[in-house]
Nucleic acid binder design. Structure first.
Lengths: 207, 207
DNA sequence: GTCTATATGCTGATAGAC
DNA sequence: GTCTATCAGCATATAGAC
């Protein structure tokens, strides 16, 4: 009974800390982020934060792990049975949804890669490499069958990643240019339609 | 005579410091970068670095300014006379060239935007907004004339930015997936061909 | 212009009372 | 589990000799 209550306190605190840490690491960078600031935003004493995570690096690792899990869950799947058109539509939509749902996670991941993936485990890289290889094979199969235009599958995957993530990672720039303070549901649908349309046409799957 | 020599010493030192600082700010972030490390990489005593720039923030501002100037020079131009096909080809090629020539600059800029453009002056944002508005008008004109597919011009510009910069900013990820340690001339040409091809087809300007 | 030595302030982390 | 007080280390920046 008592043990269970302690667990929920812990779970709640951990959740608050991770949410605060995500924002802090994005805006200040790893070194610039302070435990004090994370604690303030989580509305907990600094000592409690260090009680739960022991040190700053552990907090960052937890944030990163959370981000990778989200990437994994939200990535959508590309399966041969769908055929190229449906598969690409699903994939683009899944990536966009993920980007707009949690732009912070996308940013954390982007900064980690840009800075040289110093905190990323080898298995994360290996996993991604295998994922791309596997999905590229499916695209190649569709190309060989004449179901879609002959475009390099690996670069196609990169193009979908870059275009969809861009709206999360560079939201500041994009919103400034669009003259808005935040994305409306309207914007999201318009962007989804634009990207789906453009990419399908690029793959020779439309008009 | 003496004054001129002092100038060249200064110019050389400043150049070395900025080159070193660019790498340091990318890999360590603004806060994580240390003046000592910048000095070491520039092969100058720390005190000299602070003699030339007074403080760390000034170094960062100089790096940022250098980056913005490069962006401005290398951005290529989109002019009505070229017509959509040539204009897009030129623009994509210019952006890719810039990305592969100085990926560090692209990364610095990307991190600055991702983190909320805290160090960026207002004029930089205004300038970009005007640039996009102006170029979007040219695209719109071509669309109205039936010279290209009806695609949203602003999002088209975002798509070209994101896809071309991606190879510089995420080079770590991409090279890991491709199984290389660095880009070969071959890779660059292949990527250029892929992107030009795909984007032209997306705009209804090919096949 | 160059370089050494140092002051100052901040941050991560811990000790220990409650 | 919670929280206060504090230590140790590091980085910026400056002072001042050469």
């Amino acid at each position: 009974m008592q043990k269970k209550q302690h667990k929920t306190i812990r779970a709640k605190s951990v959740e608050k800390i991770l949410a605060a840490a995500q924002g802090e690491f994005v805006s200040q960078g790893y070194k610039g982020a302070t435990v004090q600031s994370i604690a303030d935003q989580a509305q907990l004493p600094k000592a409690n934060v260090l009680y739960y995570f022991k040190n700053k690096e552990n907090i960052y690792h937890a944030v990163l792990e959370q981000t990778l899990n989200m990437w994994d869950d939200g990535i959508g799947d590309i399966v041969p049975e769908d055929g190229p058109k449906l598969a690409i539509e699903k994939f683009v939509r899944a990536k966009i949804t993920m980007s707009f749902k949690n732009p912070q996670a996308s940013k954390i991941y982007a900064m980690e890669i840009i800075q040289g993936a110093q905190h990323l485990q080898d298995f994360a890289r290996t996993y991604q490499r295998q994922w791309v290889t596997e999905k590229a094979k499916i695209f190649q199969h569709w190309i060989n069958n004449g179901e879609m235009q002959c475009v390099d599958p690996v670069n196609l995957i990169f193009l979908i990643w870059s275009t969809t993530q861009h709206y999360a990672d560079f939201d500041n720039q994009i919103l400034t240019i669009m003259g808005n303070s935040h994305y409306e549901q309207n914007d999201i649908e318009h962007i989804t339609a634009f990207l789906t349309d453009f990419i399908l046409r690029g793959c020779g799957l439309k008009q």
